[in-house]
Design a binder for these strands. Structure first.
Length: 229
DNA sequence: AAGCGCGGCAACCGCGAGATC
DNA sequence: TGATCTCGCGGTTGCCGCGCT
């Protein structure tokens, strides 16, 4: 399920993300936002490409990301929208804010597509009888076409939330301690494979982005309490 | 108990669109 | 107005886990 970690010709790491990398990415985006995905990894002390960071953030680390079993309602929405929009995963994901487009796409390919195909095959056979089946019937039949697993927010979902919380608590400690803890005063160890002139380190020990890119509105409006780790 | 095949999911790749220079 | 950069999307791949034989 995970890719073997390796480095490309530019010295950028590929493959599975480590807990340490997750911490760095989450800490940096929490503080500065994603002002520039391409530049972000070197400022955050990560030997990753921007795309990889973006994907990791969106699919796993961003607040409120939900994992684990899909509810019947979620499946219904996906089936409905896919019937209307086709493979517009980002548009479909916009209707399910807690799910990423990648996750919905995976879910479709691994589960829903199969159900839809199975049902359509069955439907073709039944259509030979002359009875026309409505789209509502069709959707309901797809939803019922395999054993439904109603256990919402399974242990997987819980473990995902716990993982996010683990990252936060292990690295940040209690919220009250954030500004006085050693974490903020110790700079991230920047990977030696990255070739860049170190930008200024801020009072918290993070590498500051170039000033024009600091999202002031983000910083002023951001509240750690809103962050669902 | 061991081997095999499939399912599920994380992550990568290539391309197009929009923004900026 | 064309070139370049950056982002985001959709398709695809790689690999682990698990069930079956």
């Amino acid at each position: 399920m995970v890719r073997t970690p390796c480095y490309d010709e530019n010295g950028r790491k590929k493959g599975t993300w480590t807990l340490e990398e997750d911490k760095k990415l989450a800490a940096y985006i929490t503080k500065y936002g994603s002002w520039n995905w391409r530049q972000l990894p070197k400022y955050a002390g990560l030997a990753r490409c921007g795309k990889s960071c973006r994907l990791r953030w969106i699919n796993h680390l961003r607040p409120n990301v939900k994992r684990g079993n899909y509810t019947k309602e979620e499946d219904e929405i996906i089936l409905n929208l896919h019937a209307q929009l086709g493979n517009k995963w980002s548009t479909i994901a916009a209707h399910l804010p807690e799910r990423s487009d990648n996750e919905i796409k995976n879910h479709w390919h691994t589960t829903l597509k199969k159900r839809a195909t199975n049902y359509n095959n069955k439907n073709n056979i039944e259509s030979n009888t002359g009875r026309k089946i409505t789209s509502v019937e069709n959707q309901n039949a797809i939803l019922e076409s395999s054993e439904w697993s109603p256990k919402e927010s399974s242990s997987e979902a819980l473990s995902s939330i716990n993982y996010q919380q683990d990252i936060f608590h292990e690295e940040f400690g209690n919220l009250e301690e954030i500004t006085s803890g050693s974490f903020w005063t110790e700079p991230f160890e920047v990977d030696s494979k990255i070739d860049f002139v170190a930008p200024p380190i801020d009072y918290c020990g993070l590498v500051c982005p170039p000033s024009p890119f600091i999202p002031h509105e983000f910083l002023s409006s951001f509240d750690l309490d809103d962050y669902n780790w």
